[in-house]
Design a binder for these strands. Structure first.
Lengths: 360, 360
DNA sequence: ATTTTTACTGTGTGCGAGCACAGTTATTTT
DNA sequence: AAAATAACTGTGCTCGCACACAGTAAAAAT
């Protein structure tokens, strides 16, 4: 009647060996005779044994150190949210008496060198796991090779590097994100002359990000046939040049029906765009405060949210599961493309903090 | 150096009593002298003791029975998703060797009597906890009183009954949902003569739901001043009457710029509406397959998603936490108002299954 | 033939909390 | 004053797994 769980003890009994032997077989520790191995495996095969993960962690009071290779949260509110998600995961694990230590290795978003430096730092400290936003492809590659050599498990957030054996990637489908951006721009105005996708302060490191989003953006245009022109513009803050003026000129000269800003920096251009022509649709990324304010005042029409909080929380949780429970999961977690308007923004702000995703 | 966790053992030592005594104080089991109680409490006060939840559950191999009072998943795809969320929670708990049994008590959405009957059934079986969608206010009230009498903890999903001492409510802010619906309708067409909020097959049990959404809907209209008329229409499937024809007549005679369907039944009317005039905006609720198909073909413009899967999964998790870990949480979990378009729908479908929210 | 090595196997303890039960006082009853 | 009861306190076992260590048997070396 009772669906009693089968334990190592039971398997030992059924196989006619000791618990120690079963344990050795299960963990492939060797030093087991062929005969015994076979007996155990036979029982194992038809018993559907599932280790009790709770019991497993009880004895393990080890404090795992997880290195975090992330853009400096102080420098960018988006990455601040990301980091907060990690702290949230840590908090929850602590509640369960599972101790992890987060070892911060922050780098400068605009400096490949600082990424490199932080990465070397991590190799030196030999953490038990690494959560990394591998924004600089080339630099990341060799770092990841080192990690793999040292058998340190790592998880990607935000950016994937398919060539590496990460235990998981957590992020969004950028192509679809670009398509969604285009679709949202088309809500108010349908047929139009020209639409713009605007990249701000993005030199090379995010090249792949931008290209994917752009591809989605233009594909949507082409498929729907709603516009005959999409323009991709990159604009940077340059010393000696007036950024606002530069933006105004570009928008003024192109007169687009809508602008998709490919990063979280919509707040830097939305007021300028709307002051030129309030009818120009503006869609940006990420629910950071500056964007949120403009969303409420109508200077931004839609925000596509990545939920960095949940993404990186999940990242830590996956690593923790890997280490504490020796569980592994699907390797790709594509987050929903969240559409935020002035009317549902508040509901997303409430939402971030409350839950703890344990991957299954 | 090591942030070693403080254990019952340590407290016992510090207080100069045995572990048993500390345990009795912690659990208020009585049979402790005033002196000992005080000694323990003194140590407890400054030691910030947090029980090890993992160790706690290890010894407890009890299988908790959770009763589920829900509309029959077979009869409604929305509630199917809800039920799947519960199964997902159960699955995850099983992985951790925490056993719960879901005792299904399904009722007919349209029958107060079946709700009543299922509720009585639950009282009889005396479960360890109850997850309930209390759609019928009056009938629920007395049932909930009985539960409280029997000290059975219960959680609400979808609908809240603030008068009852549930350990949690999980749902959405309906007022804001109505506002959002109105906002989405206004994306394409701004100023317009008339907007309609349409209730299908909703007699009385959902009165509160509908009223709240309607209130949000009309408030948004008034505030923005974008329309001078919002019409609330209720339409039912009546034997002997042609439903499609009735819908067509109503839409045809009112010629609204947009229609918000207040339930998940948008699929029943969207094709009719669009065939009358494709320019009429249609916004519906819930990511069920029928709606999804119409979203892809442009017969529905936006869907507002409630994520019943995650809602009810969280509900089970809260109950499990309550029972296994004796943890309690905030009592209200308002879910984000998810905006779904044809371009981001797929990303939401991927998303449902992968994560396990453990409330904090 | 005895020792050493290798190959294997079983026992035992700890992890932290919960609870049953035995054990020890103090208080009341006879 | 002895016995009975009540009031309290401490010990010890359990949960399931992991790992250390002790122990045994067979094979190899001396």
């Amino acid at each position: 009647m009772k669906p009693k769980n089968i334990r190592i003890k039971d398997i030992a009994q059924l196989a006619g060996v000791s618990q120690g032997t079963v344990d050795r077989v299960l963990h492939k520790r060797g030093n087991v005779s062929k005969l015994a191995t076979e007996k155990v495996n036979r029982v194992l095969a038809k018993s559907n044994y599932k280790p009790n993960l709770i019991a497993r962690t009880l004895g393990n009071s080890k404090i795992y150190t997880l290195a975090v290779l992330l853009p400096d949260p102080q420098m960018d509110p988006f990455w601040k949210q990301s980091y907060d998600g990690m702290l949230s995961a840590q908090h929850q694990l602590t509640q369960l008496s599972l101790k992890i230590e987060l070892e911060n290795h922050f780098f400068d978003l605009n400096s490949k060198e600082s990424f490199q430096k932080a990465a070397l730092e991590i190799i030196r400290t030999k953490p038990d796991g690494v959560l990394v936003a591998p924004l600089f492809f080339n630099t990341a590659i060799s770092f990841l090779k080192d990690l793999q050599q040292a058998a340190v498990p790592f998880v990607f957030v935000n950016t994937n590097i398919a060539e590496s054996q990460s235990i998981a990637f957590i992020g969004q489908d950028l192509y679809k994100s670009g398509r969604l951006g285009a679709q949202l721009l088309f809500q108010k105005i349908q047929m139009a002359n020209c639409y713009v996708i605007l990249h701000i302060d993005e030199s090379l490191q995010n090249a792949f990000h931008l290209k994917e989003k752009e591809r989605g953006f233009t594909d949507y245009l082409t498929e729907t046939g709603l516009s005959n022109q999409s323009i991709s513009i990159t604009i940077d803050h340059q010393p000696g040049k007036n950024f606002e003026k530069a933006v105004a000129e570009i928008i003024g000269s192109n007169q687009p029906a809508g602008v998709l800003i490919s990063t979280s920096k919509a707040y830097q251009v939305a007021p300028i765009i709307k002051s030129i022509n309030p009818a120009i649709q503006v869609v940006g990324y990420d629910l950071i405060e500056a964007n949120l304010n403009l969303l409420q005042t109508g200077k931004i029409d839609f925000i596509i949210n990545q939920n960095p909080f949940r993404q990186s929380r999940l990242g830590i949780q996956i690593l923790a599961n890997h280490l504490f429970f020796k569980r592994s999961f699907q390797s790709q977690y594509l987050f929903p493309l969240e559409v935020i308007t002035s009317e549902n923004a508040a509901s997303y702000l409430l939402h971030t903090g409350y839950s703890a995703d344990l991957p299954e």
